[in-house]
Nucleic acid binder design. Structure first.
Lengths: 195, 195
DNA sequence: AGCAAAACATATCATAGGTCAAGTTTTCTG
DNA sequence: CAGAAAACTTGACCTATGATATGTTTTGCT
């Protein structure tokens, strides 16, 4: 994808599942999106900093982490056509312990809190879109929670392997392990056993 | 509390932490709230049903559960001055596997999806309030997730005991255990060890 | 008050997954 | 393209928590 300017169809496609709005609405938003390319491994938001942007991933992947002891722990993996940010810090507009790292060279459309506030101040529609995003992120979190309580590590891995095989193969094992809530050693054993 | 009619101060107090609005705004909402009293142990929303209301708890407590094998698992405990509902089902407006049970005789102000939609259709402010609620629920979920990954069962219990001793004592051990992600037996051992 | 049922406690044993340590393979970087 | 560093694998051992079983206390109901 060589797109440098967002077009309204892209936005519509990303949001359609959560929130349907006419093309004209997306067209009013697109001029406020900023195209960015992040290099692999770049930390785009450090722990202790405040998140000021929401990125919509065009291509690539981004992880949200925090440190425990000497290891980073991954609480979210985001891929194309989904939002990425430290939403906790974004909502509260204050620093969080989370950091955000780019996992592959990644293209995003980025929008700032300031722009979002403008859009949601001036239009009901803008506000509804933000709400839809917040709700989608909540759903994602709760589904994660239920999976964590319901499935064993092996079952979680198999599920991911079945539902998102491409993502498993694109993403470093250590991150997949961490996202699944286990150590790289445990994942290695599981992979060995499963395949 | 013998309140039968909500007053705007109540709403303001509940939301102030997340979203500040003038009293007049809360006054426009209060007429749409319905006062309800639920008896202890009542299941107010069964698994397989769709959630159509959001309750704001005045007094009492409510839990959100799902079934695994033969045991209910608790994913949320809500107390006074907070929202309670199966938000997953509410957002998607479709049935979920979750059920909602009253843990003590509980007073709430209840508002229906229909009313919420009306309010958020007609006013920007209404919409912002809903968004604030969605964000608050997201934050709560993410904090739960981080605690679960960071702390041992014993640490989680100690934290809750320290920060919300009244809640621990008001709520059945089996629910606390489930909420902390462990069995009642494990909690029993931990309590024995800690005290 | 008195009985049944549910909740809670305690003990024993089982196991998923963690920790540590020593390879091997892959990926960067000059 | 070589050497270093990082990622991944494998193995031995450990521990927190689950499962099961049984006993005790509390709660709820007529």
């Amino acid at each position: 994808m060589t797109m440098q300017r967002p077009d309204e169809l892209f936005l519509k496609r990303v949001f359609d599942y959560y929130f349907e709005a006419p093309l004209s609405v997306w067209a009013t938003i697109t001029p406020h999106l900023e195209h960015r390319t992040y290099k692999k491994n770049k930390v785009i938001k450090e722990a202790g900093q405040t998140e000021h942007n929401i990125d919509i991933i065009i291509k690539g992947s981004i992880g949200v982490f925090f440190w425990t002891d000497n290891h980073p722990r991954c609480i979210d993996l985001f891929y194309e056509d989904y939002f990425s940010c430290d939403y906790m810090s974004y909502i509260e507009a204050k620093p969080s312990e989370l950091f955000v790292q780019v996992l592959e060279t990644t293209d995003v459309f980025s929008i700032s809190r300031t722009k979002i506030q403008e859009l949601s101040e001036e239009s009901l529609m803008g506000n509804k879109i933000i709400r839809a995003a917040a709700q989608s992120l909540f759903l994602h979190k709760q589904r994660q929670q239920i999976e964590m309580l319901t499935l064993t590590a092996e079952e979680r891995y198999k599920k991911m392997l079945k539902e998102q095989p491409d993502r498993i193969h694109r993403t470093a094992s250590k991150h997949i392990a961490s996202y699944l809530g286990i150590t790289p050693e445990s994942l290695s054993r599981i992979r060995n056993k499963v395949s």
